[in-house]
Nucleic acid binder design. Sequence first.
DNA 1: CGGTTTTTTGACGCAAATCAATCACAGTGG
DNA 2: CCACTGTGATTGATTTGCGTCAAAAAACCG
Lengths: 238, 238
Amino acid sequence: MRLNQNEFLPSCAVCAKATHSFFSILDKENLEELNLNKSCTTFKKGQVIFSENALPLGLFCVSNGKIKLSTSGPDGKEQILRLVKGGDIIGYRSLLSNDRYHCNAIALEDSNICIVDKSYFMNLAMRNNKLCFALFKKISDDLKTAEDHIVSLSQKNVRERVAEALLFLKATYGYEKDGQTINVQLSREEIADFVGTSTESTIRLLSEFNTSKIIELVGKKIKIINYDKLSKTANLSY
Amino acid sequence: MRLNQNEFLPSCAVCAKATHSFFSILDKENLEELNLNKSCTTFKKGQVIFSENALPLGLFCVSNGKIKLSTSGPDGKEQILRLVKGGDIIGYRSLLSNDRYHCNAIALEDSNICIVDKSYFMNLAMRNNKLCFALFKKISDDLKTAEDHIVSLSQKNVRERVAEALLFLKATYGYEKDGQTINVQLSREEIADFVGTSTESTIRLLSEFNTSKIIELVGKKIKIINYDKLSKTANLSY
DNA sequence: CGGTTTTTTGACGCAAATCAATCACAGTGG
DNA sequence: CCACTGTGATTGATTTGCGTCAAAAAACCG
């Protein structure tokens, strides 16, 4: 039978096994229960999943796809705060602190996303210590990442930050099958909005890295040719 | 009787009532239990409470005093990440994510600090939903603050950021009895290390604000004379 | 007090933002 | 199928905010 309304209807158990997802820590029983308390949707590239100041109705679990979390600064300029991949959860900060969203979540490519009922999820988190710990771990890691970003923005120049951003993209999304193309497509402006610089500076530095054979630009795709040199350019502190 | 070894020996119940502390959410019973699982120390100004890469042995609860959490960047320059006051807890991120510290905690003034046993605390957090929620709330707020900081660093100029930092100091530590002196003493360098700029730029901007009657500099103390103008200068997005 | 640290002021140069124009392209419709 | 249009990418020219260096002044301290 063909489903028209909702062609994307995975089971949590299957999903947790296939991708190494946030919910992989749950046992079979809990996954089946979770399965009954979710609904699934597909978001097209560019679609808004949730927006700043809205109230959270549930937890979003990205089955597959790529998402950016961004906010707009004092003069309306976009700032990309987090980048999300399949298996990740989003919207959990607002849920846990009983707050409104302070980010926009926008699909970077077509993405399948499940929404877990808010009160069910909160209840589950409170009675399942493993899940509770995983949430603490998740939010702690996000805090660590954010604070690393602060140090970069404070202390590094744009060249170092652009190099660092490429390493970050690689670390988050990995390579394509060829083993050197970063597996995500961002516009130059999006890279700039993540790095905290202008689009023009980003372009100039990317083409400089291209010229010096550190990376290779193939359309919008970026290949990392010399990872070590890129690391050195990024002036990492870790 | 006079205590020589440890003159600072408060009861958690008294502390929770006096200052509005993180543990104020606990009931009497739990506070008494907590009281039995802590030890207290005084840290002199400048003393290190814990340092980067060390393993957490417990949760620090600041009874009174002021603390900076900082890390050192790629070239060894200090970056102040969080500012902490009496009633706050510190070191909880590493505890919750079972990680090493990634900050240094240093006393900005003489501070009384209690250390709660690690496994006792983790256990308490897991069986007390209220505490668990409070921890989620706490870490969520820290993440929100960090992400706001990212937006500032990315999109604001130094003037705006210095103004914002003064507002932040006021929001965190409040005023002294006179109702306009910010109740914390930081060196110009420390302000710079928080704002993400050079000491000289910080000094120049502070004296500019002083000249234009937005603030008043009295030694190291800073008075806010014109709060509205300071807010406008900070170009807040919230 | 003498010595050290912190703060302040001044001069200078550069990294990076801004402004402006062109190029490349992907859709779209006639 | 090709001109048309809009969007993103690129390159160049110009300006400037801010970091850096240097030195004086003030504050701190044993």
